[in-house]
């Protein structure tokens, strides 16, 4: 059987909220070491990669590997039943047809249970090789979210220029062009190498969808290398990571 209990069920609720507008039906892989999920949006431009380690759960048991095909759209509807400070337990049998979700408040005097029907999905699993990113930067997730929203009002596309010492977001639209440059700390500047700078263009519409995860973490990590998708990574405290991959645009 499989059973995983999170003391703070709102974390799981926030994760589902953060991916529901990108992916619809997904396979969640449950293994003895944790839960993971990989799925692309319908246009194959973006990819979601979630990993939650078993050590972050209050209780975790998974006797054998299970693939749980689930509608994220429906799961998001069920998540509306999760209130602030509720714990959440996910459980199913070894050959499940549904996933049971149990939410309980802190006083243990209110328990909500819902069985979500599972679905069979073709597995479209991409192998993401170990990549050495030439440019990585960590910034405030709220600030990143705000600037992506503001830039989207000016242009559909943003050009990222990231080095180890700064990140620059440049846009060009019908009304004009401009950029926001954010410098990182002096300590990091001392170790910088100019050749680390990479420039790539991305669709702001997707970045705004990724930013629905900003309430999961105060910080967001951006990783970039030439000729490879951008990685936007949110640490889910003591549980794991939620990563979004975004294919660049080809610019003339």
């Amino acid at each position: 059987m499989f059973e995983a209990k999170l003391t703070d069920g709102t974390i799981f609720k926030k994760i589902i909220e953060a991916i529901k507008d990108l992916v619809t039906d997904v396979n969640i892989d449950a293994t003895p070491t944790g839960l993971s999920l990989q799925a692309m949006d319908s246009s194959h431009v973006a990819l979601v990669n979630l990993h939650l380690g078993m050590e972050g759960f209050e209780r975790y048991r998974c006797d054998r590997n299970l693939t749980l095909g689930i509608s994220i759209t429906n799961l998001a509807k069920v998540m509306k039943l999760v209130n602030q400070n509720d714990s959440i337990t996910l459980k199913c049998e070894d050959e499940p047809t549904y996933l049971t979700i149990v939410c309980q408040n802190q006083k243990h005097d209110r328990t909500t249970q819902f069985n979500v029907n599972l679905i069979t999905l073709d597995s479209e699993h991409l192998g993401i090789p170990e990549t050495e990113y030439t440019s990585e930067i960590t910034m405030n997730s709220g600030e990143f979210s705000k600037l992506c929203k503001e830039l989207y009002a000016l242009s559909e596309t943003v050009e990222f220029e990231i080095s180890t010492t700064f990140v620059k977001f440049a846009v060009e639209g019908e009304i004009g062009s401009g950029s926001i440059k954010i410098q990182t700390s002096a300590d990091e500047a001392e170790t910088s190498r100019p050749e680390d700078t990479v420039k790539l263009s991305f669709a702001l519409r997707y970045l705004n969808l990724f930013n629905k995860a900003y309430s999961l973490s105060n910080q967001v990590k951006l990783s970039m290398a030439a000729e490879t998708p951008l990685v936007v990574e949110y640490e889910v405290e003591s549980l794991g990571t939620l990563k979004y991959y975004l294919a660049p645009k080809i610019t003339d």
Partner: peptide
Amino acid sequence: MTEQHQMDDYYEYN
């Protein structure tokens, strides 16, 4: 003029 790449351009299916 911009064109959008896809994930399949970079990664292979397992």
